[in-house]
Design a protein around this nucleic acid. Structure first.
Length: 450
DNA sequence: ATCGGCTCGCGCAA
DNA sequence: TGCGCGAAGCCGAT
């Protein structure tokens, strides 16, 4: 494996023997996972058992039953796969920095490997954990194709500044995965039985009012199946109709990618192997690679990725110039949440999200821009949009979500446009555009109030 | 239907 | 220092 995928977070005077532990967090799959492959490589070279541990945090950024259910069902499938590979697994409940040190001590682990995540809370967990850690710790970017810190050492201005950097590095990093091997050194401790999802869910103090969805299957196998369906009947006209919110021409892969049930690199490799039309393939890879890795870059290098202080200077200036503008409509977060605005298109988009856990990508822009237009301030608008996105979307709490909302409300990765009320020079969108391009009334009917 | 202007700043060429 | 150009748009002119 390319050693540039690994960062040494801690180099302690380590024990020479003891199991290698992979703290799985962002990349919840067994195959196609560079962090797990690295951990296995380390364990094999020192002839040690390999243990995968997942820390279940009972109140993660207000996640609901919808996200916990999707995640845990996928995780159980991953655990079963690990078992077949003779790799031990543990599900711990609690804050990572509190439960992991004791767990590692009890196991007498020699090395901790974890996956990379640019989000604030994950970095706080890691910082606190490192302070208490007495063994080596390695971090592997198992989510991006080009490791985030290699792709760029700084905050990128827009897609066009990151794109050439990625292009140059893809030949090095977009390589085939080796298979996960059956691990030759078993853990001496007795294997724990596979936890029951319902039991684990019942033990969590989470919001159950946002229910699970049943329109897409959960887990790594289902993700690969969906990918191959998309290659068969979606990719060849991708970009032609994929912006139309009435046609289901999106790949539907984002929930799997978000929870790491599917690897972006595997997706890219399969898309290239499919060898479809050049333009459509490029359009899809642009979203999968450039846009996704740009969102990681944004969250990694901008500590204010979820509030207006993270907007570019021109955008902060122009929005503040228009803070006093009259709002023709002004809604609270609760009114937005209930989908009771005056705009049937906006309400339909909101209901699509509440009902299905996945708003159409094109509608997400319109949805967020209208929240800006109908909120008391950009700060309030950011809060509302992030609250709703994280609460209802299956792919909430993802850098893509934060970057997308910041693009819509704060001109992040965008440029200035004609000045107007409230928006200032932030790119404007209205329903006329939607009506011009799509038969948007049918979208409203599909997601009409019950 | 199509087209240019709107407007900012990065990155590269010179 | 100048210049080209950029995720998804809008608007008015032709």
């Amino acid at each position: 494996m390319n050693p540039r995928r690994v960062r040494i977070l801690k180099s302690a005077v380590s024990a020479l023997s003891g199991p290698v532990v992979y703290w799985m967090s962002r990349d919840q799959r067994a195959e196609d996972n560079w962090a797990l492959l690295h951990a296995q490589q380390q364990a094999v070279s020192t002839k040690q058992p390999l243990v995968v541990v997942f820390c279940l945090v009972p109140d993660f950024l207000q996640a609901t039953l919808r996200q916990y259910g999707f995640m845990l069902r996928g995780l159980m499938e991953t655990f079963a796969e690990l078992e077949r590979k003779n790799i031990a697994y543990r599900l711990l409940v609690g804050q990572p920095e509190e439960v992991l040190p004791g767990f590692l001590a009890q196991l007498q682990a020699s090395l901790l490997v974890t996956d990379f995540d640019p989000l604030r809370i994950k970095r706080q967990w890691k910082a606190k954990l490192l302070a208490r850690l007495t063994i080596d710790c390695h971090e592997v970017d198992a989510h991006n194709i080009v490791p985030c810190w290699i792709a760029s050492p700084k905050l990128e201005f827009a897609a066009y500044t990151l794109r050439p950097k990625l292009k140059k590095l893809l030949p090095e990093f977009l390589e085939q995965f080796p298979p996960l091997e059956r691990h030759p050194y078993p853990l001496a401790q007795v294997a724990t039985p596979l936890p029951e999802v319902e039991t684990v869910l019942a033990g969590l103090n989470i919001d159950r009012s946002v229910g699970e969805v049943d329109w897409l299957q959960v887990g790594a196998q289902a993700a690969l199946l969906r990918l191959h369906q998309f290659l068969q009947d979606g990719l060849d006209d991708y970009g032609v109709n994929s912006n139309d919110p009435l046609l289901d021409r999106q790949s539907q892969l984002s929930p799997y990618l978000h929870f790491g049930q599917l690897s972006a690199q595997r997706t890219a490799l399969e898309v290239l192997r499919h060898d479809g039309p050049v333009q459509q393939t490029e359009a899809f890879l642009e979203e999968l690679i450039v846009r996704r890795e740009l969102a990681d870059n944004f969250c990694c290098y901008n500590p204010d990725y979820d509030n207006p202080a993270g907007f570019p200077a021109w955008a902060q200036q122009t929005l503040s110039d228009h803070l006093g503008d009259l709002r023709s409509y002004s809604y609270t977060a609760a009114e937005f949440e209930q989908a009771t605005t005056h705009d049937p298109i906006w309400n339909a988009a909101q209901r699509q999200m509440v009902k299905t856990g996945k708003m159409h990508g094109y509608m997400r822009m319109y949805w967020a821009k209208k929240i800006l237009e109908w909120s008391a301030s950009p700060r309030q608008a950011m809060q509302t949009a992030i609250y709703l996105n994280d609460r209802y979307e299956l792919d909430g709490r993802d850098p893509n979500g934060y970057a997308g909302i910041a693009w819509s409300i704060g001109g992040v990765h965008d440029r200035a446009w004609s000045e107007r009320q409230i928006f200032g020079k932030i790119r404007y969108m209205n329903d006329k555009g939607l009506r011009r391009k799509f038969t948007i009334d049918r979208y409203c009917e599909r997601f009409a109030a019950e």
